[in-house]
Amino acid sequence: MNLSLARRLTGITGLAAAVALLLEVPLYFVYSGAPPASNVLSRLLIGVLALGFVLTFAMSFREFVAQASPENAWIGRLAGGAGLAYGVVTLVSSGLEAGAVIASDHPIDPTITVDGTYILYGTIGRMLLAMFLGSVGYAILRTSVLPRWAGLLTCGLALVNLAFMPSLFFGNTPAHFYAANGWGTTALMGALFSWWLLGTAIALLRRPKPATT
């Protein structure tokens, strides 16, 4: 894969992931009480599709960094591995939640979560996403594949995710901002990640290929 193709593939998959995630996030705020199973399954389906694009974005970014700056390929590999781990862990938690919904004939009580999924969505997800964003931001700063401000912004978002790791000490009520699966820990962080993906993808698709020497 050459540099131009790696850039386009990274940008396109990032854009697709961002669009899917931006479609998913509003579904969390449609109902003030317990959402019906159809709502939960719809957002899970969109989220699974988005995560597929996120996985492809992470792997494409790894190749993009390797092509743009071979001496910094290790950073791209770190980003790709962290992105892969984040995607897989979130897919597992989505599968557990979907299984619980399908097995139930009643609307989902937002104060009840399948045992363990709120840790996967929350603390574990925040840690893995921080690793992914931190390595992507560092790669941008080291290789200049995007403007310096983009790297700094990405590193800043990684720190925000790290700040939500201790949320597991504050219960698992989704209506609470800083709970293990609270709307700040999950929905807000997901929205910020969506907008980051969108901006990064547009920058990759619009920025011309660097001149080769």
Rank of each mutant, 00 (worst) to 15 (best):
M1Y: 13
N2K: 13
S4I: 10
L5I: 12
A6C: 10
R8Q: 14
L9Q: 11
T10A: 15
G11M: 09
G11D: 09
I12S: 06
T13P: 02
T13G: 04
L15N: 02
A16K: 09
A16I: 14
A18G: 02
V19C: 08
L21P: 00
V25H: 01
L27P: 03
S32H: 12
S32M: 09
S38H: 09
S38N: 09
L44C: 02
L45M: 10
L45V: 10
I46R: 01
V48T: 12
L49W: 06
L51K: 07
G52F: 07
F53Y: 14
T56W: 08
F57T: 13
F57N: 03
A58C: 04
F61P: 03
F61S: 10
F61H: 12
E63I: 09
V65I: 15
A66V: 03
Q67W: 03
Q67G: 01
P70H: 03
P70M: 05
E71D: 14
A73E: 08
W74E: 07
I75M: 12
I75A: 03
R77K: 11
R77D: 11
G81C: 06
A82Y: 00
L84V: 13
Y86P: 00
V88A: 15
L91C: 04
L91S: 08
S93I: 05
S94Q: 08
G95C: 04
G95I: 06
L96C: 04
E97I: 03
E97H: 07
A98D: 01
G99F: 05
A100P: 01
A100W: 05
V101G: 02
D105F: 12
H106N: 13
P107E: 06
I108V: 15
P110R: 15
I112K: 14
V114Q: 10
D115V: 10
D115N: 13
D115A: 14
Y118E: 13
I119L: 15
I119D: 10
G122S: 08
G122F: 03
I124H: 00
G125K: 01
R126C: 08
L129R: 00
L129F: 02
A130P: 07
M131A: 12
L133N: 03
S135F: 10
A139M: 04
A139G: 15
I140P: 02
S144I: 00
S144W: 02
S144G: 10
L146E: 03
L146D: 02
R148A: 11
R148F: 05
W149Q: 06
W149L: 11
W149E: 07
G151E: 08
G151W: 06
A158V: 11
A158H: 10
A158Q: 11
A158M: 12
L159D: 08
L162W: 09
P166N: 08
F170P: 02
Y178T: 13
A179F: 06
A179I: 04
G182K: 01
G184C: 05
T185K: 05
T185E: 11
T186N: 07
T186G: 04
T186Q: 04
L188S: 06
L188I: 08
M189V: 05
F193Q: 03
G199V: 13
G199A: 14
T200R: 00
T200E: 00
A201W: 01
I202Q: 02
A203P: 05
L204S: 01
R206L: 15
R206H: 13
A211L: 15
A211R: 15
A211I: 15
T212S: 14
T213E: 14
